[in-house]
Design a protein around this nucleic acid. Sequence first.
DNA 1: TCAAAAGTGTTCCGAATACACCCATGC
DNA 2: GCATGGGTGTATTCGGAACACTTTTGA
Lengths: 242, 242
Amino acid sequence: MMKGPNSYYISKYKLPLDEYFTFGLSVDCVIFGYQEGEIKVLLVQRSLEPFKDQWALIGDLVEPDQNLCDAANNVLERLTGLKNIYMKQFFAFGNVDRHPLDRVVTVGYFSLVNSLNYNPIASSWAKSAKWFNINDLPELAFDHCTILQKGIETLKNEVRHKPTGFELLPLKFTLLELQLLYEALLGCKFDKSNFRKKILEMNILKPLNETKENVSHRPAKLFKYDVERYKKLEEEGFSFQL
Amino acid sequence: MMKGPNSYYISKYKLPLDEYFTFGLSVDCVIFGYQEGEIKVLLVQRSLEPFKDQWALIGDLVEPDQNLCDAANNVLERLTGLKNIYMKQFFAFGNVDRHPLDRVVTVGYFSLVNSLNYNPIASSWAKSAKWFNINDLPELAFDHCTILQKGIETLKNEVRHKPTGFELLPLKFTLLELQLLYEALLGCKFDKSNFRKKILEMNILKPLNETKENVSHRPAKLFKYDVERYKKLEEEGFSFQL
DNA sequence: TCAAAAGTGTTCCGAATACACCCATGC
DNA sequence: GCATGGGTGTATTCGGAACACTTTTGA
């Protein structure tokens, strides 16, 4: 199993009789984005066997001196150039037969990026990277379909109870943009007036003295997500719910 | 690092220059119980170095041909003799320095058992096992305190949104018993009438034609949790909430 | 007949819903 | 002035909280 251009990963499990078992540990990242009112996920086309040319989640083996979460952050940074992005571990996949060549246990992470800001970088282990609508996915390598579905499920669950969704929007956004995002995430419709009332009463949005420009209608006020404020409220027992 | 009485676990990560890195994968189980109106957790006293004699979560290394979840189930069965118990993976702990001797990544599982039914079994790697109140815990080996806290957090979260708590009760229970369990789990009080109304309207309890016996007051009706019914309702979009 | 818990009914209040309406801007 | 989305106000409904009350059993 190749790891980068010039090193092999061969973990071994020593059995009582001096036999070794090959064994690997990796991370896989489900990178979510939001474009044109739809939730997207970033996939790469594999340039190596196994599953050469098939679409897959981006991932890599964990280095001996590397924390799990650092491995995941590195993977994201190598592909997108983005640092300090929201990232969350959601599940470890450890079935014996999930990898055709070796025993590889992989830990799934998902991250949320504002996908309009940049173009993903193709790298040595990936021919190309592309955003896919989460409702229109290609066939995936390994058990990445399972991993991705679990990631989507976790995201939808998290978004309901924590103010996570903001990470998918630009820093400054309008209330309608926020509403449309949540409608895409949760697969439902909200009443405009009620949505505004609810989110504003939470006091986790900081109104900016700016408005959207170059629109052919009344320009909307821009808001910023106020993390500090949310953290303070959370300590006081407030719980986000949408 | 010893694994059982007669076998060693030595996973190795092969660096480019034929050097190997020792590397382990384990599971740790947070076993929850419920006794005398309090949530308990089962801990064992280590009989081996490192952290000899200290209290710890029960766990073990994963075998080469063993699925992660099977490893967790085996650990539980070896300690308690119980099979087919509710068990859920909650997090993978992969910091480089979490184990003093080696790089060991561990995956945390929690399970819910009706702890009145049996006594835990002391085994080769554990002097003794004991139930601890989750609000009165001893110092723990490794990073088991972190793991345990994360397990508790996950349980409390899950219990709110899924009918999980029932696993902690005997098969047949009264509504008051259920209420007291949820009060212990969530750390709050419920109004008797409202609690009953809410839980009964969910239609996930099957009333039995039996009553509690040998009580010096009006005997309470017994109920059973109806998993089938819940699964059907869940498919129709129902979501448990307490 | 009394204690203790089982079990029910009713009122009240606040939050969520539905919906109607006015406002600002570009073309 | 009209199309488009921004933004606000209000009546109605529904579910949860609070609390009072009746019932059944053993001692």
